[in-house]
Design a protein around this nucleic acid. Structure first.
Length: 594
RNA sequence: GGGGUGGUAGUUCAGCACGGUUAGAACGCUUGCCUGUCACGCAAGAGGCCGCGGGUUCAAGUCCCGUCCACCCCGCCA
């Protein structure tokens, strides 16, 4: 053994003992006479002292120490002289007087400093990720991530779940996100896909009788990246047989309760709030509402339909709505800043954005179209105070809500009104399908294996084929046994009760416009499996990375994934992706066309 | 695919609106001094393709066009 203990685990009861430590030279303070080194490992730092009075030779050698050299030291632990204690660090009352030490490894001067003083560009941090990960903040994030996964594993194990691995080389599925493809050398011209999720396999495990499955599993989606989206990410995936939505919801609530308790020492409030999809959409313009603040969207169509503002009246008459939110603190915006806000609303899909400042009365070019009574009524509904601004979008309900929902987030970002803490909610009663304008067909809102609500089963099976191609048919009204879990405005998970009946499954595929031939080719194995005694089952997948991100307070997934990718899905450390040898391509029967 | 912000010593940034001597600061690095520091201190020094390409101009870090990269967002994606 090189060492007796970790640096920050040394306590005052070791005073007087001879102790061996290993670690990295964090900071050195060379006084010529005395040399102080902050020795660092994953637990923290401790001050070690090199004095010529202890060893002339070692003191001389210590002059050559530089940042991030790896050293092993042996010496006596002493209490620091009175007045030299450092209350900022755990080991601030003690220090190790070095008798002997060895330089195990030297380091080039660093491309960036490892202290938390300056924010370093991410590309550089990722290129030298091994250095970045040495930083205390990163060490903390990954230790926390580990404790979260341990809490999850222990909890699910205690509830009788078994962890089973599913293939990484699997089958491409046409619905959902773009697949990452892997060419098969042994089967020229064919490809595996990396899993977007283990969806079908975990359902087959239910058919196999495992009853309760879970997996902490990597998933892959070849879509554009965001701060909260990486091309590969990790899910806490679980599935149970003989359950209804409430069973899944309760087990997830209990799991998260244990997780927050064990890892952060926080008792979150369960059960979580539940919102229907419709409520969430109408109040917050989103299916993942951030409930850390108010600023709810208000429908004021009734109030303004008798006003003289023709734009609003016309839209209402054509079946549209007028909705508004409180622009907290925005009355001070200049005309130019308002123009920018309007442009932002337009970039979100609105035709325009009307506004009224609340500033010594009401101030706006459109104020003349409204009576004092109407203005007061609107103000009251929207909840504006002096210094705020009322923002209106008049459009179809879905556009009005979506645009105001995005503006709501923008406003909260600007005026910092978000509460601290963890605001969970379940979003339930999702539509089973939504209309895809590009493809001119219905697509699954969740995925094609989601069970309709019991009340809608009859309707679904008797749905005439003409309805499948009609965006206004009552296909859009069918509800799913699906639930999403939302935390602080992030969707951290989603699941559903699945279809366990081949007839219903085939009907769903028909509505999706997937031909029988296609069904057979893509999902044949699965539809066949459904016919051999399938228990009712359902499950959920939680985004582990997002959960860790929120629990650590990080604002990007990149800070909780050890080796993440940039927005162009590039890994600055390994420089993947790269070109490959022609020979490799030949083996795979692939010719490039670029 | 689209919009926004940024790219200047190793790092973080200033300089750019108004083009003009030798491109600055802080931290880091190197050397020397320093026995109680802890973001140690003091002194000296090294360090620049101003992202890349083109253009305007007597003159470009600064203006114009293009391009690449990073980040944030829309589309896309559970």
């Amino acid at each position: 053994m090189w060492r007796d203990k970790y640096c920050a685990e040394i306590k005052e009861d070791d005073i007087g003992k001879e102790i061996r430590l290993c670690g990295w030279v964090f900071r050195r303070r060379d006084h010529g006479g005395l040399i102080f080194i902050d020795l660092r490992d994953r637990t923290g730092i401790i001050q070690v002292v090199f004095s010529p009075e202890i060893s002339e030779e070692m003191h001389k050698k210590a002059h050559s120490l530089r940042s991030e050299y790896v050293i092993a030291v042996k010496g006596t632990l002493k209490r620091r002289p009175e007045g030299t204690e450092n209350p900022e660090i755990i080991t601030g009352n003690i220090e190790l007087w070095v008798k002997e030490f060895e330089i195990l490894s030297t380091s080039k001067p660093l491309p960036f400093q490892l202290d938390e003083k300056t924010e370093v560009s991410e590309i550089l941090r990722l290129k030298y990720r091994y250095l970045d990960l040495r930083r205390e903040e990163m060490q903390r994030n990954f230790q926390l991530r580990h404790r979260i996964t341990m809490a999850v594993r222990n909890f699910l194990d205690s509830k009788g779940f078994i962890e089973i691995e599913t293939p990484m080389l699997t089958k491409s599925t046409p619905e959902g996100a773009r697949d990452f493809l892997v060419p098969s050398r042994l089967n020229p011209g064919t490809f595996y896909a990396l899993p977007q999720s283990p969806q079908l396999f975990k359902q087959i495990l239910m058919i196999s009788g495992f009853d309760r499955y879970f997996q902490i599993v990597r998933c892959f989606r070849d879509e554009d990246l965001r701060a909260d989206r990486q091309p590969e990410f990790t899910q806490i995936d679980l599935e149970m047989s003989f359950v209804k939505p409430d069973h899944i919801i309760e087990i997830v609530e209990e799991m998260l309760f244990k997780c927050f308790k064990e890892v952060l020492g926080i008792s979150i409030e369960i059960p979580f709030k539940r919102l229907t999809y419709e409520e969430a959409f109408n109040k917050y313009g989103s299916d993942k509402p951030d409930l850390r603040f108010g600023l709810e969207i208000q429908d004021i169509s009734e109030v303004v339909k008798n006003s003289h503002f023709k734009v609003f009246v016309d839209i209402i008459e054509r079946g549209g709505v007028v909705k508004a939110i409180c622009g907290k603190g925005l009355a001070s915006l200049s005309r130019g800043e308002i123009d920018k806000l309007v442009a932002l609303a337009q970039s979100f899909g609105a035709k325009g954005l009307a506004w009224i400042k609340v500033k010594n009365g009401f101030e706006s070019p459109i104020v003349k179209f409204f009576s004092e009574g109407i203005l007061r009524e609107i103000s009251e509904r929207v909840g504006v105070e002096e210094g705020d601004m009322i923002l209106f979008v008049a459009d179809t309900n879905s556009i009005a809500c979506e645009v105001l929902g995005k503006l709501r987030l923008e406003i909260a970002e600007r005026v910092a009104i978000k509460n601290e803490g963890f605001y969970f909610a379940w979003i339930v009663d999702f539509p089973l399908f939504e209309w895809d304008q590009d493809e001119k067909r219905f697509v699954s809102m969740h995925h094609p294996f989601t069970s309709p609500k019991d009340d809608d089963l009859e309707k679904l099976l008797n749905m005439p084929e003409e309805a499948f191609k009609d965006p206004y048919s009552n296909v859009k009204d069918l509800k799913a046994k699906a639930y999403d879990i939302v935390l602080n405005g992030y969707e951290i998970g989603g699941g559903s009760i699945r279809i366990h009946n081949a007839e219903i499954q085939e009907q769903i595929f028909k509505i999706l416009g997937i031909s029988e031939q296609e069904i057979k080719k893509r999902f044949g194995f699965f539809v066949e499996a459904l016919k051999y005694g399938t228990p009712p089952h359902g499950g959920i997948a939680l985004g582990l990375d997002r959960l860790v991100m929120i629990m650590t307070g990080a604002d990007s997934l990149r800070d909780v994934i050890a080796f993440p990718k940039t927005q162009k899905a590039f890994c600055p450390l390994s420089e993947a992706p790269t070109e490959v040898d022609l020979k490799q391509l030949k083996d795979l029967h692939i010719k490039l066309d670029i």
